[in-house]
C-alpha cells in the first residue's frame, strides 16, 4: 500500500486565528477515510490546503508524494473535489456547469462514455440539468458538484461534507456511488461531522478537534471511544433487575422510560439481558460525535455548533 495523503504538523493561521494546529493525517491508497470533526474543527481548511487553494503556514503536506501548493494543477488531473458549500454560476445551467468541470478535468475524451455516465448520474440523483444555476436549491447545487466529481474517473476524491443539503434517499445513492469508486480502487477522503455517516462508509477514521488530530484508526479501534444509548419503557416491577445489568452507565429513569449508555463494543453483551427482561419499546441510538467529544475531551459544544440532521 502506498500513502496517498500525508500531513505532518500541518499548521494554518488566519491572522491571530489558528485554524490548524499541528494536524497529522495519513490516507493510504484505496481506502475510504473518514475525516471527522465538529464544525469549525479545521476540516475544510485542511481540504483546501490539500487542494492547493490555501497555503500551509507550517508543517508539511503531500499528495501522491508531491506538494499540493506548487504542483496544484498537475495533481488536480488525478483528483475530484466536492466543496462543502457548493456555489455554481448563476447564469449557467446545471448541465453546462457539469460539462465544464468535467472537461476542465480532462475526463471527457471518450465522449459517448462520458455522456452515458452523466445521464446515468442525473437520473440516479434525480437532477434536472436544464435549470439556470441561480434557480437551484442548496441540495441541487451539491448535486452539480457530486455529478461532476463522479462523471469522470479520478484516483483521489476529496469530499467536504458531500451529503449536506441532500435528502436521505439521495444519500443512499451517494453511498452506492462511493462503493463503486472504491471498488475501482480509488482513494476517498470524506469529511463529516456525523459519526454514523462515516461509520457506514469508511474503513478508517481520523477525528480532529480544534485543528489537531485526536484519534486515528479503524472503526473497530474507535468503538471503545463511543457509547450507544439504550432506552425502553420503564416497568417499576423490574427496576432491580434493570439496575443489575452489567456495563451500563448514566442510568436514568425519566418520563416513564429507562435510559442508559453502553460502550459501543459491549452492546452485544447487553442484548441478552434485555431479551430476558422482555423490555418494550426498545430503542438503540447510535453514538454521536458530540457525545464522544463531551465524554473524552470535556467539550461543551455550544448548541449553535451542533447541527441537527434534517
Amino acid at each position: 500500500m502506498t500513502t496517498v495523503i500525508s500531513t505532518r504538523g500541518l499548521q494554518k493561521h488566519f491572522g491571530r486565528t489558528i485554524a490548524l494546529d499541528g494536524l497529522d493525517l495519513t490516507v493510504e491508497s484505496g481506502e475510504i477515510h473518514g475525516f471527522l470533526g465538529p464544525n469549525g474543527a479545521g476540516k475544510t481548511t485542511t481540504l483546501r490546503i490539500l487542494l492547493g487553494l490555501a497555503r500551509a503556514s507550517g508543517g508539511e503536506a503531500t499528495i501522491f508524494g508531491r506538494d499540493p501548493w506548487t504542483e496544484a494543477a498537475d495533481l488536480h488531473r488525478r483528483i475530484a473535489y466536492v466543496p462543502g458549500d457548493v456555489s455554481i454560476w448563476p447564469n449557467l445551467t446545471g448541465g453546462e456547469a457539469i460539462d465544464l468541470l468535467s472537461r476542465l478535468r480532462g475526463g471527457t475524451t471518450d465522449k459517448a462514455a462520458y455522456r452515458k455516465q452523466k445521464e446515468r448520474l442525473c437520473q440516479v440523483f434525480q437532477f434536472d440539468p436544464r435549470k439556470k444555476g441561480r434557480a437551484y436549491s442548496k441540495g441541487n447545487r451539491q448535486k452539480v458538484a457530486l455529478i461532476a466529481a463522479f462523471a469522470t474517473p479520478a484516483e483521489l476524491y476529496l469530499l467536504d461534507e458531500p451529503t449536506s443539503g441532500i435528502d436521505p434517499l439521495m444519500e443512499q445513492m451517494f453511498n452506492r456511488e462511493i462503493d463503486q469508486i472504491a471498488g475501482d480502487g480509488s482513494t476517498v477522503l470524506l469529511s463529516s461531522h456525523i459519526l454514523s455517516e462515516v461509520e457506514e462508509l469508511c474503513d478508517r477514521v481520523s477525528i480532529i478537534r480544534a485543528g489537531r488530530t485526536v484519534e486515528s484508526g479503524t472503526l473497530a479501534e474507535l468503538r471503545h471511544l463511543t457509547r450507544t444509548e439504550i432506552a425502553f419503557v420503564h416497568d417499576p416491577a423490574r427496576e432491580a433487575a434493570v439496575t443489575a445489568i452489567p456495563d451500563t452507565h448514566d442510568l436514568v429513569i425519566d418520563s416513564g422510560r429507562v435510559r442508559f449508555t453502553v460502550d459501543s463494543d459491549r452492546v452485544a453483551g447487553v442484548l441478552p439481558e434485555l431479551a430476558r427482561l422482555e423490555v418494550r419499546g426498545l430503542t438503540v441510538a447510535p453514538p454521536s460525535l458530540e457525545d464522544l467529544f463531551l465524554r473524552h475531551y470535556g467539550d461543551e459544544l455550544a448548541p449553535v455548533e451542533v447541527e441537527v440532521r434534517a
Binding site: 487542494l51 496544484a72 494543477a73 488536480h76 488531473r77 457548493v86
Partner: peptide
C-alpha cells in the same frame, strides 16, 4: 468571493493561468 473560482481551481487549471 462567490466560490465558483474554487470549482475551477480544483481542476487542473493553474492559479496564474
Amino acid at each position: 468571493a462567490h466560490g465558483t473560482a474554487e470549482l475551477v481551481l480544483g481542476t487542473p487549471v493553474p492559479r496564474v493561468r
